[in-house]
Design a protein around this nucleic acid. Sequence first.
DNA 1: CATGAATGAGACTTCATTCAT
DNA 2: CATGAATGAAGTCTCATTCAT
Lengths: 201, 201, 201, 201
Amino acid sequence: MNHHSVRGGDKRARILESALKVFASKGFYAAKVADVAAEAGVADGTIYLYFKSKDDLLISLFEEQMQQVNSQLTTALVGAISATDKLQRFFKAYLGMVETHRHATEIITIELRQSAKFMKDYANPRFAEFLKLLAGIIDEGQASGTFVSGTPPTVLARAIFGLLDELALMWVTTKGDKIDIRKAADWVGRLVLEGLERRSA
Amino acid sequence: MNHHSVRGGDKRARILESALKVFASKGFYAAKVADVAAEAGVADGTIYLYFKSKDDLLISLFEEQMQQVNSQLTTALVGAISATDKLQRFFKAYLGMVETHRHATEIITIELRQSAKFMKDYANPRFAEFLKLLAGIIDEGQASGTFVSGTPPTVLARAIFGLLDELALMWVTTKGDKIDIRKAADWVGRLVLEGLERRSA
Amino acid sequence: MNHHSVRGGDKRARILESALKVFASKGFYAAKVADVAAEAGVADGTIYLYFKSKDDLLISLFEEQMQQVNSQLTTALVGAISATDKLQRFFKAYLGMVETHRHATEIITIELRQSAKFMKDYANPRFAEFLKLLAGIIDEGQASGTFVSGTPPTVLARAIFGLLDELALMWVTTKGDKIDIRKAADWVGRLVLEGLERRSA
Amino acid sequence: MNHHSVRGGDKRARILESALKVFASKGFYAAKVADVAAEAGVADGTIYLYFKSKDDLLISLFEEQMQQVNSQLTTALVGAISATDKLQRFFKAYLGMVETHRHATEIITIELRQSAKFMKDYANPRFAEFLKLLAGIIDEGQASGTFVSGTPPTVLARAIFGLLDELALMWVTTKGDKIDIRKAADWVGRLVLEGLERRSA
DNA sequence: CATGAATGAGACTTCATTCAT
DNA sequence: CATGAATGAAGTCTCATTCAT
């Protein structure tokens, strides 16, 4: 009988999973380390055997989650040829994850922002990766002439992330009847790819 | 002659202004009430003559700032005729404010999100107003046939807010050479109104 | 029109009256000076024109109330001849006052005790007077042979005060159907004068 | 071997003991939680591992002390046959405890009263038990014809408690030469059982 | 490795008291 | 005399972190 495996997963992973749930439901500041420990079924002190501090726990959570997000997005793009196709798949995959990874979405959309303030030095490399992936698609589209040039891909990537992120936030925080987040991918696709204005002819 | 005026502005306004500065630079949670008091040049207890609690201070700040934002946006739209024109002015005005109201932007972009978590019951009516203003423009454009129909205006409004908000956040948090936030209004205008794809003919 | 008389009474008296009401209903520690001021319809600062401190307000209240109690008791004894008669009148008068001066009773029964602790040096001369009055009756009874000797009158006086005081407290704190406080005077009279044991013959 | 025992007594008991001492000497309101912690030799925060709040500490103190008082009184009555005997033993035991449990006496005589005010809902069940014990003796005496009937036992019990309580308070607060509290039991016994008046024959 | 009782720095908030008007 | 806004000392309580077991 292995002490370290309880309900199929090593302790570090279980703590991370619990932190995800607790931070998402109470917010990072309101959540207590003891809450995370209780959720994970370990002693308070045990947290500190795997993470340097409460902040470190949050950062590790980002790392893990964003890595998953990036990996799934990358997978989703496999086989796509045109930039247009890639972008549509990107939207669909991202907003699809919102539904399947509720808690992760809350952490990313809400706490990621605070991080800019409270973790002055944390560079957030995974988010950078995310943006790079998105900017790469746009760059490719602009280079191939499929997309209009003139706006820096990094800015567009950021704008598009904000757009997706806000829809995710809306979906996550709405109590009653939510929008269909999967339909939203199409709406966003139309908005971004075709624009709002009716084409003249 | 106002008994309560001390160097241009009553005390409540001064405290609010100081809270804006302090919360923006340290984040709401890291900021101490004593910091705000010191910045405002009043005693700690004085804060509580004007605000019920630290939370109330943050909420009041939102109210005030969002009200200003809404009022400036409304002003900016005066005289605009088409929905397209209104939307462009909206972008220009919003991103213009980012530059002139740096601190307010930080509060709105960063702390507004947390509010969803920590202030369960705070409805944030000013933000609702903001969205209504934006959705109104889109609705008008769709009704007149200028804008493509099919996507709910409320969803589009939210998406566009996210987009603007993210650019504002990017601008605010970038240390070195920032993008030209005023140019960004045009970029965003093009993205939203015309879309990314090159028009076929 | 006299500024100092509002609703028939000078300001000092009004403050004292308000303090009585407020202290009685919330307790001295829970009561705020501002509460007393509000009740009296004066500004907070005004309290300090008449009393040195919150403590002084409580002490002054004791003085005033005990003086009234003593004066009424003294009046009640006028015309009584025997010690027995005096004691019965004393009981009747004391417990009668409990009903007519509810708030004063609460202050005396409850806060008087605390005073022993929090006002190390306050001698409480009025309470001393009260005890002297009661001890005087007992002493007189013992001297005349009406009362049994052997127990120091000061001790008996104190014991009897405790007895009356506790009944007063019971009456004051009971919410539902209270005992008839006036009947209690007779009960106490019987207990003290005749004792519990049935007389043999 | 008990992990939690530190020099004879678990931490909760030590804190309670320290609270007894500190509250008795400074009064509940004047006493700081830090004082209790220092007296107990623990950190301030440790108090809150065992008690919900400062109020809870006081209530727990009451519970514990009154329970001890009740238990000792019950023990003292074992073997007594007549109501008269029981009452005399009750007096002796109660006033004896005053001397041996000085601090507890101060808490009970002084702070118990305040509790009526500041703890609106705290029912104080131990004190109710105490009164029931006393009223039981009186009821028994009345039923057997040993004691005079006519006065409700609950009222008499309360009156007698007040009497004992006041003597205890007198003894506790007197600085110089105190009365002999053990003699007082006889004095009280005489007063209550035989009354003040000299028996006619 | 794991525990969880203990720590203690520090935050928010209250409120008696002052003093300029 | 009266006001009441302002003060700021001080208290209760929280909670991330440690360390002896």
